[in-house]
Amino acid sequence: MPPLQAAIVDLDGTLIDTLGDFVVALNRCLQDLGLPGIDRQFVANTVGKGSEHLLRSTLAHVGADPALYAAAWARYQAHYQAINGQHAQVYPGVEQGLSWLHSQGLRLACLTNKPTAFAQPLLQRMGLAGYFERIYGGDAFERCKPDPLPLWRTCEALGSEPSRSLMIGDSSNDAEAARAAGCPLVLVTYGYNHGQDVRALPAWAHLDRLDQLAHRLRQGLGA
């Protein structure tokens, strides 16, 4: 692990357990359209690739006509905006982990595939926004994770080199983006990762809690 200048942190499944929000908003949307509902496990296996992918996958899962997408999108957006953060919770150890990173003088950014209009108020509501210099959603750049472009652009905004900017995430999207961007990677084990065990993905460390990062970094740096 090289000396770090910055840390770039994912949101859903890394900082905050937002499955409850997704389940409620999607089911209200489906109910509006007269469609059957979905369960928490389906969302856990599907979330992470952006809201459009989630909604299209949901419509396909319940056997809906793809032509309903535009109507479903409007309803989903309205429902999610109304309940954003009400059925979510910050994971144990997250605030302590972010506080430690901040205390080390690292510049912090949150980089998520969630739309920026949802990500910013959610972090505010959960008391985490103050840790981050930048908050970028999946609509902030031309492409989203697992493409490396958002990581490169975030590094530029933070004034950090990719090789000295730690990516912290919970899924293969984060892993692929970090590898392609040249960023060191830490993965948390409690997130979603499309129903797969994240420990199967190569990373500098796999953490059960974000506040374990200080100890692991000291170990890795020989401190």
Score class of each variant (00 low, 15 high):
residue 197 D to V: 02
residue 218 R to V: 06
residue 138 G to V: 00
residue 172 S to G: 05
residue 194 H to Y: 09
residue 44 A to K: 09
residue 202 P to H: 13
residue 39 D to K: 03
residue 125 R to M: 00
residue 148 P to D: 13
residue 172 S to N: 09
residue 52 E to T: 15
residue 90 V to A: 10
residue 47 V to F: 04
residue 85 G to C: 07
residue 173 N to E: 14
residue 185 L to I: 05
residue 100 W to Q: 10
residue 101 L to I: 08
residue 155 C to W: 12
residue 185 L to F: 04
residue 117 A to N: 11
residue 160 S to W: 06
residue 121 P to G: 09
residue 88 A to W: 03
residue 111 L to N: 14
residue 58 T to P: 05
residue 26 L to T: 13
residue 199 R to S: 00
residue 162 P to C: 06
residue 49 K to Y: 09
residue 30 L to D: 09
residue 161 E to Y: 02
residue 95 E to G: 13
residue 21 D to I: 08
residue 124 Q to L: 01
residue 155 C to P: 15
residue 56 R to K: 15
residue 40 R to Y: 14
residue 69 Y to W: 10
residue 190 Y to I: 07
residue 139 D to H: 13
residue 18 T to Q: 08
residue 34 G to E: 11
residue 95 E to V: 09
residue 132 F to A: 13
residue 84 N to F: 09
residue 182 G to I: 05
residue 177 A to T: 15
residue 204 W to V: 07
residue 84 N to T: 09
residue 211 D to I: 04
residue 120 Q to E: 14
residue 7 A to D: 09
residue 54 L to Q: 04
residue 118 F to L: 15
residue 151 L to W: 11
residue 54 L to I: 06
residue 24 V to R: 14
residue 61 H to E: 01
residue 99 S to E: 12
residue 146 P to M: 05
residue 204 W to Y: 06
residue 95 E to C: 09
residue 171 S to I: 02
residue 188 V to N: 10
residue 56 R to D: 00
residue 222 G to Y: 03
residue 120 Q to S: 07
residue 220 G to A: 14
residue 70 A to F: 05
residue 63 G to V: 13
